[in-house]
Design a protein around this nucleic acid. Sequence first.
DNA 1: AAATATTTGACATTTATTACCATTTGCAAT
DNA 2: ATTGCAAATGGTAATAAATGTCAAATATTT
Lengths: 156, 156
Amino acid sequence: MTRHEKHFSSNKEKEFEFTCRKHGLSLTIQRRAILENLAGRTDHPTADQIYDAVKEHLKGVSKTTVYRVLETLVNFGLARKVNNPEAKARFDADTSRHHHLTCITCGAVLDIHAQQLNRLSFPEELHGDVEFIDYSINFNGRCPACLKKSGAKNTE
Amino acid sequence: MTRHEKHFSSNKEKEFEFTCRKHGLSLTIQRRAILENLAGRTDHPTADQIYDAVKEHLKGVSKTTVYRVLETLVNFGLARKVNNPEAKARFDADTSRHHHLTCITCGAVLDIHAQQLNRLSFPEELHGDVEFIDYSINFNGRCPACLKKSGAKNTE
DNA sequence: AAATATTTGACATTTATTACCATTTGCAAT
DNA sequence: ATTGCAAATGGTAATAAATGTCAAATATTT
């Protein structure tokens, strides 16, 4: 499957349609296009970045709509906001448990998939006080591109 | 030591003075007051929240200065930005390895200290491709206050 | 195809952050 | 302590990110 396939992952598409019908949400082309774009990339884009990508295909989309649709997708579990230190929201259509590496050099956010990291147990001593639902690990370090550019070790 | 002591943790104060001298930064009362405030709280405040707190003692502080000083503190390793999903920066003067719980109900960000979580090994299979420096786990769930208010289980 | 409920697009507004620059302050050298 | 200069601050303006409003457009139901 290529990055530019016209229709997005049928899994996600089915989930989208199911969720919309379940909650009485209209299946609009804007929602479909925005989720399709988000699901087709792994760079954890901001709303603006999605807007830039989506406006090519959907002439006349409003930025307001992009923000609103993303909020809707998050509210209904079709996407998540990625934990990050910057002052802007980043989105991810992959709602399964996985982790991220934020590059200290370029700021890119990469997915880290590793079975061993998906089975952490919640701290026993806090059970009862707090309720744990899920977790995600944020690594910081350097991405392949930046690592390559600067030789092996940090040169700062 | 109480939460409202006039002078902040001498450890942090010493670190502050050492770091400033090391890098030729002036020891201004603004920097001192802002770091003192940040170090004296565990709620991972935004720049605005720090401004609100600090302006009581430091009449005439500029919001610009608060933003600027926080950026400086982060740049020189005296504070960190906390990974979070919101579209604003949150700060933490605790730069040691620890983790956070974000309450899905009220949005509060709590510290999670647990030895068992501090010794994760970085994914072997990615060594060489990426450089891992540190990590922080973001739990989501519910904080003690919200858990108490709503009985045992989620009532949404 | 018509009726109705929902969503969108355009604009206005708020919130968060950064840029700019004249004034002030910290600090080192008298 | 006083001077001189580099560095930082404060105030204002500008930019960026996100949200609110509402009439027009679209999806869904009938």
